[in-house]
Amino acid sequence: MIPAKFEYVRPGSVDEAIRALADGGDDAKVIAGGQSLLPLLRLRLAYPELLVDVGGLDELRGVTDAGDALVIGARTTHYQLVHDPLVAEHCGLLAEATETVADPAVRHRGTLGGALAHGDPAGDLPAVVLALDATLIARGPGGEREIPAADFFVDYLTTSLQPEEILTAIRIPKLGPGWGYRYEKFHRTAQSWATVGVAALTRRDNGSVAEARIGLTNMGTVPVRARAAEDAAAGAAASREALRAAADRADEGTNPPADLHGAADYRRHLARVLTGRALAAAAGL
């Protein structure tokens, strides 16, 4: 199908893009790689009057070392993240999960910032940045502001970005020594969305798990942390049995959807099983 008509501008800078968004009112939309937005436009599930294309802005692209964190430009593509040495060294969970997003052609075009700003709870990367305690950096007419990942995802396909704001970068704390990670994803076919995904991080301290962080994909209208399982895993013995017991609480407080891919109680089951696997793998078991 062919998208509904829209105007299109390709600004030369982020500031120009913000002005274009402000002038475009509520019906303006940012496009970067377009891998989430273009399918919506084609199906006419969205019909913005103006597209502001930031896909050519080099200031939004690349990974930089900021001491205790990495700062990733919002339009850095999935392909670039998967191949970036800094991400591999300090933020391996992001690379591991990004490699499972869609397929190679989509990863060539799709961007980290686009995947987050789209706010799809079935997308892999929202739960990952939540588990990584990332901070999202947005710029608007009033300047720049920082949004913790926990405050960024508001509802289904809805984020706390204002209409005239652009997500410019994502700051992710580097993982220190002792941290391990795993993204476990269950999906029916090679390139489909996760029925459920689990992003787990653990910090080992000799024979026990000192700290755990768990982000859940597609277990509600927004990505969520499995807080009860995190608390249960903290201080637990680094054994499969202990971590499986902690993982049994992974679905507490979640409100998973029911659709053709799975009923809600099936998703709860998947969340518990996948969390057990992800915690064990993250803890090196």
């Binding site: 299109y8 377009g34 891998q35 273009l38 084609r42 896909g55 052609a105 060539h108």
Partner: peptide
């Protein structure tokens, strides 16, 4: 509809001609 764009595979139904 996969084609190569600057050498990389893309789905040409998921790219605007202007892009």
């Amino acid at each position: 509809c996969t084609v190569l764009m600057d050498g990389q595979s893309v789905k040409s139904c998921a790219v605007l001609a202007v892009q």
